[in-house]
């Protein structure tokens, strides 16, 4: 049985359709990504799953419970990190964990979480005195202190510096290692690509694709390119051979530098042609297709955030 089961959920605000028939399910133990630009219904979807809002139609089950009618029971089993939440400025780190632990019937030992999340040295520091990354670690630890089966993390690395983001990613992988199912809402492609087992791509209130990040990228036949430098004595004929490789769309030469564009797996074919002809190339670079390309192909628009 899936941990989360969402079927044909719709939601309208003031006559505007925010969610238009959302269907997906999340399996136990996976990191499930909800990806899309701001304002595409990601947060609304998660809030409906958490029981903070009611859907206009459709059905939602989380651990077999209805988030609205069984809300109080469900909240024992979920941990939530909301976008834009703070704690009182004068609340100390240990007090926050101790307090939130008291809300649950079967909490985790918050002293363990202090150590796991690198907060032990900060236990007596007040919330307002923490750095952005430290605050984020505390907020995530609070989402886990109730010993949840599902954790919801909404835009958790927004506003963090690159180093803190990387560090946070490692911590999210740790959560999965403890068997907690994670629902990760993000508008960062790299984050989703790095962390998620599966991703639902949201666009204007609908899900346009659900798959693993790798399959989403593979499924997109966007044109991409490779570049290399030819030794000066290389014959011009090699470029004609490359032009005839399946998938190659164009070949351009600018001095020693050759740029080849094409679709699907043309780059592998081109490199094998070069090897067969014993052509020596240097500075070979193949542009990797990314989730950004997949997103543009799926939604027909640039990923503007």
């Amino acid at each position: 049985m899936p941990v989360i089961d969402v079927t044909e959920v719709t939601k309208r605000y003031a006559g505007r359709t925010v969610l238009d028939g959302i269907t997906f399910s999340v399996e136990e133990g996976e990191i499930f990504g909800i990806l899309g630009p701001n304002g595409t219904g990601k947060t609304t979807t998660v809030e409906i799953i958490e029981g903070l809002r009611a859907a206009d139609s459709g059905s939602v089950r989380v651990l077999g419970l209805d988030p609205i009618t069984d809300g109080r029971r469900l909240k024992e089993f979920i941990g939530v990190q909301l976008q834009h939440t703070d704690l009182p400025d004068n609340l100390k780190v240990w007090e926050a964990l101790d307090l939130y632990a008291s809300f649950y019937e079967d909490p985790r030992d918050w002293r363990e979480l202090l150590v796991e999340w690198g907060l032990d040295d900060l236990r007596n520091v007040r919330f307002a005195k923490l750095s952005g990354g430290q605050k984020q670690r505390l907020i995530i630890a609070l989402a886990l202190v109730g010993n949840p089966r599902v954790a919801f993390l909404d835009e958790l690395t927004t506003g963090l510096d690159p180093q803190a983001r990387r560090a946070t990613w490692e911590l999210i992988k740790q959560i999965r290692a403890t068997g907690v199912t994670v629902v990760l809402v993000s508008h960062f492609m790299d984050e989703v690509e790095e962390l998620c087992d599966r991703v639902a791509v949201f666009s204007q209130g609908r899900i346009v694709a659900i798959d693993t990040p790798a399959e989403l990228i593979n499924g997109v036949d966007a044109e991409h390119s490779m570049r290399f430098s030819l030794a000066s004595d290389a014959a011009e004929e090699i470029l004609d051979l490359i032009r005839r490789v399946p998938g190659v769309a164009s070949v351009q030469r600018n001095g020693a530098v050759v740029t080849v564009s094409g679709r699907s797996d043309f780059a592998t074919a081109v490199t094998s042609v070069l090897a067969r002809e014993h052509v020596v190339v240097t500075d070979l670079r193949i542009d990797k297709r990314t989730l950004d390309d997949a997103f543009v192909a799926l939604t027909g628009r640039e990923f503007d955030v």
Binding site: E50, K75, E76, I78, H84, T85, P88, Y104, G146
Partner: peptide, 17 residues
């Protein structure tokens, strides 16, 4: 008003309290 502004009331509504 600060509790509401900081999202503390909303955060609480995701817990059993």
């Amino acid at each position: 008003a600060t509790y509401r502004e900081k999202g503390i009331l909303r955060r609480l509504s995701t817990t059993p309290v």
